[in-house]
Simulated scan of single mutants.
Amino acid sequence: MRVRTVFFLLIISGFMGSCVRNDDTPLVKAYFSEDYISEHKGRYVIEVPKVYELAHVVMAVKFQRQRSDYFIEKRTSYFQEVLDYFNDYNSSRIFSNYSYSESDYIENYAFRDNSYAYKMVNEEISLKETYTSISQYDIFKDFLDDVQAFSYESNFNDFYTAHAGFYENQIALYDAIIPVQDMWDWLENQFSARYDCYKIIISPLTGGSHSTRRFKTDTYKETLMFVPALNPEIHSMDTLNIAYNIRHVFTEIDHNYVNPVTEEFRDELKKAMGDLNNWKDEKPSNTVYSSHYMVFNEYMTWAVYDIYISERYPEHIASQIREITISKMEGDRGFIRFRSFEDSLIQIYTNKSPGENIEDLYPEILKAI
């Protein structure tokens, strides 16, 4: 049995709801000490990390007038507090040098997610001892000097410290609402992959952009999920909306179980799916899904979420969630065959033999598509 532990890291001493995980590139390296493993093994962690929040502040100021809320959640009073405080420093060189728009998906992910590999000690930003980077393409490193200068100029540390209570409340709310341990246990009953620690990295500024990364050594496996926080100003906490908000983290967690299985069936998958144009309409936000492997994983992770909801919630809630999922996948995200794919998967899952799990069903799933 895993022990649930929630850490709040101040790190002073030390549109669509899509998800991104590029398994076509090698995993970057991480170094886990014996003390680190002892502290984290068997636990999940929910964090609002300092440098990660600083990266969000940079993006919030930079993108404040853009209409998209893909990377930055702009409907909260916290967002307005960020602008009220940091707009006085918008002449800092980071805002002229960081020339991307909010629609530059790959670059913004590479800036935001890689900021998690950094810590702030006595207001100095440096690489953590644990990670070399979070992804291969570390844009945050390219702008590190500019981000550091902005942090000094704006006294970001003061702002972050003043909001410590708010971040603690965000973590507590997330932990109370989202059944992380139950999702962990359920997925490890459905798949053979095992993880020693879940890290759930949230920010009150994260919009619809979610992503996940995983790291492993011979003795320890860790998965990171970058997802939005919950905010009562914009999120209703009734049963339907709780089930809906579970999706943000579930469809990141289950990439770490689905993707390794899909990897074993790459050749069969390509033959089964055929022309990718029959599986997605091209949209700006789904251009990153450029292979059969990546498109199939999006179909699978969201369909597995619907199966999980169907086993945890009453039928009337599960059916509403399923229609929301289908609408988002087919309409918003352009994955145009999702309903038929999920119909087939649900039928196969419902008729599975005793003792079979989702991983066992892959050959039959591929035959059906």
Score class of each variant (00 low, 15 high):
Met1His: 10
Val6Met: 06
Val6Phe: 03
Leu10Cys: 03
Ser13Ile: 11
Ser13Asn: 14
Phe15Cys: 13
Phe15Thr: 14
Met16Ser: 12
Gly17Gln: 06
Arg21Leu: 15
Asn22Tyr: 10
Asp24Gly: 08
Ala30Cys: 13
Ile37Trp: 00
Ile37Val: 14
Ser38Cys: 11
His40Tyr: 13
Gly42Met: 10
Gly42Pro: 07
Val45Arg: 03
Ile46Leu: 08
Lys62Cys: 03
Lys62Gln: 09
Arg65Ser: 10
Gln66Glu: 15
Ser68Met: 04
Asp69Trp: 01
Glu73Phe: 09
Glu73Ala: 11
Lys74Leu: 13
Ser77Pro: 00
Ser77Ile: 06
Tyr78Pro: 00
Tyr78Val: 02
Phe79Gln: 05
Asp84Phe: 09
Asn87Gly: 02
Ser96Trp: 05
Tyr100Thr: 07
Tyr105Cys: 03
Ala110Asn: 15
Ala110Gly: 00
Arg112Gly: 06
Asp113Cys: 10
Tyr116Trp: 04
Lys119Cys: 06
Glu124Ile: 14
Glu124Asn: 14
Ser126Lys: 14
Lys128Pro: 00
Lys128His: 11
Glu129Cys: 02
Thr130Gln: 14
Ser133Phe: 04
Ile134Asn: 01
Gln136Met: 12
Asp138Trp: 07
Phe140Lys: 02
Phe143Val: 01
Ala149His: 08
Ser154Asn: 09
Ala164His: 08
Ala164Leu: 13
Ala164Asn: 08
Gly165His: 04
Tyr167Ala: 04
Ile171Lys: 05
Leu173Arg: 12
Ile177Lys: 12
Ile178Val: 14
Gln181Lys: 14
Asp182Leu: 13
Met183Pro: 03
Met183Glu: 08
Glu188Gln: 14
Glu188His: 07
Asn189Leu: 12
Asp196Arg: 09
Asp196Met: 11
Tyr198Cys: 07
Leu205Phe: 10
Leu205Ile: 08
Leu205Cys: 09
Thr206Leu: 06
His210Leu: 13
His210Ala: 13
His210Glu: 08
Ser211Phe: 00
Thr217Trp: 08
Thr219Tyr: 08
Lys221His: 11
Glu222Met: 07
Thr223Pro: 01
Leu224Gly: 02
Met225Trp: 01
Val227Lys: 04
Ala229Asn: 09
Leu230Trp: 08
Leu230Gly: 03
Asn231Met: 02
Glu233Leu: 04
His235Asp: 15
Ser236Arg: 14
Met237Ala: 05
Asp238Leu: 03
Ile246Asp: 04
Phe250Cys: 10
His255Gly: 02
Tyr257Met: 10
Tyr257Gln: 02
Asn259Phe: 06
Thr262Ala: 13
Thr262Gly: 07
Arg266His: 11
Lys271Pro: 00
Ala272Pro: 05
Met273Glu: 07
Gly274Val: 10
Asn278Val: 01
Lys280Thr: 05
Asn286Asp: 05
Asn297Trp: 01
Met300Gln: 08
Trp302Asn: 11
Val304Ile: 15
Ile307Arg: 12
Tyr308Ser: 04
Ser310Gln: 10
Glu311Asp: 12
Arg312Met: 13
Pro314Tyr: 09
His316Phe: 13
Ser319Met: 13
Ile321Leu: 11
Glu323Pro: 02
Lys328Met: 13
Gly331His: 05
Asp332Pro: 00
Gly334Arg: 07
Phe335Asp: 02
Phe341Thr: 02
Glu342Cys: 11
Leu345Pro: 00
Ser353Glu: 15
Ser353Val: 11
Pro354Lys: 07
Asn357Tyr: 01
Glu359Ile: 07
Asp360Asn: 15
